[in-house]
Design a protein around this nucleic acid. Structure first.
Length: 487
RNA sequence: GCUCCCAUGGUCAAGAGGUUCAAGACACCGCCCUCUCACGGCGGUAACAGGGGUUCGAAUCCCCUUGGGAGUACCA
């Protein structure tokens, strides 16, 4: 059996989209699972679409998530160069060879003629090259070439018959050759199109299987025709179904576009993103859903790949991210959370490790942290109505009474620790013979000014320190007094 | 328009003709835990797109319809 060599071949046109990341992942896993080689190739034959810094971003992202290539532009390898723009002469050589073999031909049609054809050809998308230059006499071709006329090299697709190929996932696919266009292989600027470059490079770099998005499914027959006229062995194919967004629900700029980089910056863990993406269109043969990259390298199997498009569900990613966060070592979480505490403006002297212990189990995405804890930095404006909570049986009246008593007790505490606070409040509750919530609820509300908080009254008071706590509790009491009701 | 591909709950999906009057996960709902929320525990709602075949038997095979995706560029 031949060595497995797969390649991830992105175009440097911007950030790495989630779908692209998944393609990279699967391609990588197929190589690793088979103890093969994983190659990175940059497909930059369209210089107009080149985006500055895109290549670096690809390196960075792949490295960050741990998808490391064995051959590629930055590390070299026996089949380089791995950047298509640097392989220009190679394509020209093979394009001409193709002409000699009768699988392609020179075409001198101008942009204008083609546009005219398009306009008069009926509906959009119905254009097919009319074969104008398909059978030009050899002498005429030579003459025009000599004259320096701009040209393009087109594939000469048979007019009749069918072409069939096998896809490991989709099975046998057959198309009528008559539906295939004489596509351009070599552009007038001497650069190849994908149609030529992928075939030449995959062959020269001994890529097998060829793994790519399903958007190439319908053009694969044309590539096979090329392999055939070259007399090259046709590779195995694995086409991957796409990842889509929720229909009608475009991800806004605010949510961040669906690039790895954006999610990462928002506070999604790289392991969680990779794990989620792995499961988008693939499932293991059991019900497991938590995998490290290393584990995926062991268990990945293309039989688990799905043929239908998968919709990216941010909800499940969030959940999975939350699971990863919960499983994090507390110290590790603390380190990751720190920048977000700064963003929330927490006081320098606050016990941030304690904050972390309260926040870790409540965080799905790191960027929710500031909103969750900003009340610790500053008491929000709030209404006395917050003191009313049906289930805790609190009212403005009893809150006023109990908060006042709590203030008395707490004010006397010499040593402001959670343990002491808890003890003092418990004692108070016991002496009054009340339900816990009757005291804890108003205290927590006054301390935080929020209905929902990470941690309870005791933890919050502990974090705030005595001075700030007492200040807030008294503000709460004033609010309650102002809210009226019988004394 | 034409060509190719796909089709199990809102989403990801298991299921490769009979042990499935269809797993699991997210989301949602309820209960428990509880000083709020979250966590955790327990339970629930929810699907084989429709119609024809084939077969003793179909989510599983075939056809049609419908829906979705892709291609139809001197983009990849």
């Amino acid at each position: 059996m031949n060595e497995v060599r797969t390649r991830f071949a992105p175009s440097p046109t911007g950030y790495l989209h989630i779908g692209g990341l998944r393609t990279a992942l699967y391609t990588y896993l197929i190589a690793r699972k088979n103890h093969g080689t994983f190659i990175l190739r940059i497909e930059d034959t369209d210089q107009d679409r080149f985006v500055e810094g895109a290549v670096e971003l690809i390196y960075h992202t792949l490295k960050l998530v741990g998808i490391e290539h064995d051959e590629g532009p930055d590390i070299g390898g026996p089949y380089g160069p791995y950047v298509q723009s640097e392989r220009k002469p190679v394509y020209q050589k093979y394009a001409k060879k193709l002409v000699d073999l009768g699988g392609a031909y020179y075409c001198f049609c101008t942009e204008e003629r083609l546009n005219h054809l398009r306009e008069t050809g009926g509906h959009h998308g119905t254009f097919r090259y009319d074969g104008h230059c398909r059978n030009l006499p050899r002498e005429e071709v030579e003459r025009r070439l000599q004259a320096g006329e701009p040209y393009v090299i087109r594939q000469k697709v048979p007019k009749t018959g069918t072409t069939t190929f096998q896809d490991e996932l989709f099975g046998t696919i057959t198309v009528e050759n008559s539906t295939l266009d004489d596509g351009i292989l070599l552009k007038s600027n001497g650069m190849p199109t994908y149609n030529l470059a992928n075939v030449v490079d995959d062959h020269l770099m001994k890529i097998n299987p060829v793994v790519r998005g399903s958007e190439y499914l319908s053009s694969t027959p044309k590539y096979n025709l090329l392999y055939e006229t070259f007399g090259w062995e046709i590779p195995r194919y694995i086409h991957l179904s796409p990842v889509m967004r929720e229909p009608g629900k475009k991800l806004s700029k605010r949510d961040g576009d669906a690039s790895f980089e954006d999610f990462y910056k928002q506070g999604f863990l790289k392991e969680a993103i990779l794990n989620y993406v792995a499961l988008l269109g693939w499932s293991p043969n059991d019900n497991r859903e938590f995998f490290t990259l290393k584990e995926l390298e062991e268990v990945f199997d293309i039989r688990g790949l799905s043929k239908s498009p998968a919709i990216f569900d941010i909800n499940k990613l969030r959940w999975m991210n939350g699971e990863y966060i919960k499983k994090q070592d507390p110290e590790e979480f603390h380190e990751m959370a720190l920048p977000w505490y700064k963003k929330a403006g927490l006081p320098e002297n606050m016990d941030l490790r304690r904050v972390s212990s309260l926040v870790q189990s409540r965080t799905e995405v790191l960027n929710e942290i500031p909103a969750m804890i900003s009340f610790l930095a500053e008491l929000p404006e709030y209404d006395a109505a917050l003191f009313i909570h049906k289930r805790s049986k609190t009212t403005v009246e009893n809150s006023r009474e109990n908060l006042a008593k709590a203030i008395q007790v707490l004010d006397k505490l010499p040593d402001w620790t959670e343990g002491n606070i808890q003890q003092a409040l418990n004692d108070l509750i016991a002496s009054l013979g009340l339900k816990n919530s009757l005291v804890f609820w108003p205290v927590r509300i006054a301390a935080s000014g929020q209905k929902v908080t990470p941690g309870g009254a005791v933890e919050i008071l502990g974090l705030l320190g005595k001075q700030e706590s007492m200040r807030r509790l008294r503000i709460g009491l004033e609010k309650l007094k102002a809210a009226g009701g019988p004394e």
